[in-house]
């Protein structure tokens, strides 16, 4: 018998009698102002949050905040004048090692934890939001939901090869519980809440 079959047989033999899958209750969110909540949580986990009217305003903030950035990659044609807006699908991801700033769209944000949902449907390369030194994510204000529960309601059966929630800059507290921002991923995260 293959290991697969012997494992499955052992599991079938040993698993208890069927216990039904519970309904997920409607969890309490209690937030009247999700943007306010999102902002305060996101800031508490190290993100910078900007409420902006349009991509032009995003550009102005980025130029000011990241004036030292040499290589900028974005997924917005509107930002073509500050950086690359196209990465060929066949590109070796290692060549992105020198990206200073990546500006990417997020589909939705979650107020309770400051996380933003990004998938490879919008990402030029999976590694981009991790390998860049600094990351900016742009999300429509109307797409901020209170809880993870609603986030997965929106995501539903969405098709993607890779998707990720990003909540703040990369961090570690492995050394004596001292929080250090900028472990292996982006050193900062700027979140733009688009009107």
């Amino acid at each position: 018998m293959s290991s697969r079959d012997s494992i499955l047989a052992a599991v079938a033999r040993n698993q208890p009698e069927h216990i039904p899958l519970p309904e997920i209750p409607a969890f309490f969110s209690g937030e009247t102002d999700v943007l306010e909540k999102f902002t305060s949580v996101a800031v508490s986990i190290g993100s910078k949050v900007f409420r902006v009217k349009d991509l032009e305003e995003v550009k102005q903030v980025l130029l000011k905040e990241y004036s030292g950035a040499r290589r900028i990659v974005s997924a917005f044609p509107e930002l073509a004048d500050i950086g690359e807006v196209y990465i060929a699908p066949a590109t070796d991801p290692h060549t992105l090692a020198n990206v200073d700033l990546a500006v990417l769209p997020a589909q939705l944000g979650v107020a309770e934890n400051g996380a933003l949902w990004v998938t490879d449907v919008q990402l030029p390369m999976r590694v981009l939001p991790f390998i860049c030194q600094y990351l900016a994510l742009v999300v429509p204000q109307k797409n901020i939901v209170p809880l993870m529960q609603q986030a997965y309601d929106v995501i539903g059966a969405q098709e993607y090869g890779f998707g990720t929630f990003i909540a703040g800059p990369s961090k570690t507290a492995d050394i004596e519980q001292s929080l250090v921002l900028g472990a292996h991923g982006a050193r900062t995260l700027s979140v733009f809440l688009l009107e």
């Binding site: 997920i24 996380a115 993870m148 529960q149 090869g161 890779f162 990720t164």
Partner: peptide
Amino acid sequence: RKHLGVFLRLLARSATGQPITTYSSHFK
């Protein structure tokens, strides 16, 4: 998939007191 909406709310809060880990990556 929707059950992640339950577990991801619990995991990091229980582990380190963060509302969620910085990255929750879905490999499909």
